[in-house]
Nucleic acid binder design. Structure first.
Lengths: 209, 209
DNA sequence: GTCTATATCGGGATAGAC
DNA sequence: GTCTATCCCGATATAGAC
């Protein structure tokens, strides 16, 4: 819940985010967005000309919500181990708050990769920052300092880190049922514990000595 | 490509799997399934009474395709380290062959958790096997044998293992673009290497001494 | 069993009053 | 800017001939 009193356009965008991230592009009904925003269906078309356009706005908004914090950590000059810790901590936090966002991004990207990935790649290009390359440098430095094994591959490490943060949230409806008897609180606690768990897990696996 | 000459019902189910797993329930058009199966739209309704029913059949079929192999490994009496290795190897293999299946399962489970999770939980109940509990036992034994740290939590380990296998395939459209310049072959190779990578990564992080 | 034709309905989009 | 009424197409589903 952000603010409650905003202009119509803002209310629409917020409602649209809720519905789109929950049900995806094709599963979303304009009517449901209108209802949730407390306005009429045709107002949606007044502000955003089409469903497609509204979807685009939502997609960007979700990116904007996620990118800044995470990129800030990744582009910082913290040493590798601290950077991993900070990233995992912040990332699990933010996706726990917006649990359907990552699955939404992945699913829609899967549905229409080229059309959508453009938005993302442009975002990186604009700020002149590629998280994967940047992370590779961090790993290289840590190797030179003798902190991590020479055999460590930065891309695998990066993908591992992302996987361990995102998957448990995205697959929650499944995991909570098969491993936690569908106990919401227990799973919340599990996710909270993962911050430490994932960090130590990652660092243990790459640390020299 | 399984067999080419099968009865109409089989052709429909196969085509339906392709389309449903690719586009999800709401993104799927019956027409597209009919085209892909090389038959008429109304034949779909002849064999499966509704889209909903067809979807159910597909969902089960996908489960059946995945479950047996993976459960066979998990329920075997291999020692923990070998079990991890076998699982990771086989799992990455099978989801690489059916890359859209995991995302499909997760997304549809997210969309309608209770309606769909029932199918899954029943499947487990029928065979009287819960992978999470079983894995917990394996970890316990390994601890008693002094092979892994006492602090290792079996649920985190299980979720880590699943995350590391599934996410890189599910998020491929994204990862391949930001980390591999959208080079398909490079990413294929990356996935192939992950079998060893993930295994050693997991074992390194839990092994005692 | 397989086809063509058609019914029916839902949802995106527009027109036009206020 | 916001509403009501309506258009129109696409998609599921059914009827019925062969």
């Amino acid at each position: 819940m952000t603010e409650l009193n905003k202009d119509t356009e803002g209310k629409i965008l917020e409602a649209a985010q809720d519905v789109f991230t929950e049900k995806g592009m094709s599963g979303t009904r304009m009517q449901e967005i209108a209802d949730k925003a407390g306005i009429n269906k045709s107002l949606l078309h007044y502000y955003y000309r089409s469903k497609e356009k509204l979807f685009g706005a939502v997609f960007k908004a979700v990116l904007v919500k996620f990118m800044p914090k995470t990129l800030k950590v990744l582009s910082s000059d913290l040493p590798l181990f601290e950077k991993i810790e900070k990233f995992v901590d912040g990332y699990i936090d933010i996706i726990t708050k917006h649990p359907s966002a990552p699955l939404f991004l992945i699913f829609e990207l899967h549905r229409n990769p080229d059309g959508i990935a453009g938005i993302l790649l442009n975002a990186f290009k604009e700020i002149g920052f590629n998280p994967v390359e940047s992370f590779a440098k961090d790993v290289k430095i840590a190797k030179e300092m003798g902190l991590v094994h020479e055999g460590v591959d930065s891309k695998h490490l990066f993908v591992n880190m992302m996987s361990l943060c995102i998957f448990p949230v995205a697959a929650r409806p499944l995991l909570q049922r098969i491993g936690f008897e569908n106990d919401k609180k227990a799973y919340d606690k599990f996710l909270e514990m993962r911050k430490l768990e994932v960090t130590t897990f990652l660092i243990n696996s790459i640390r020299k000595s």
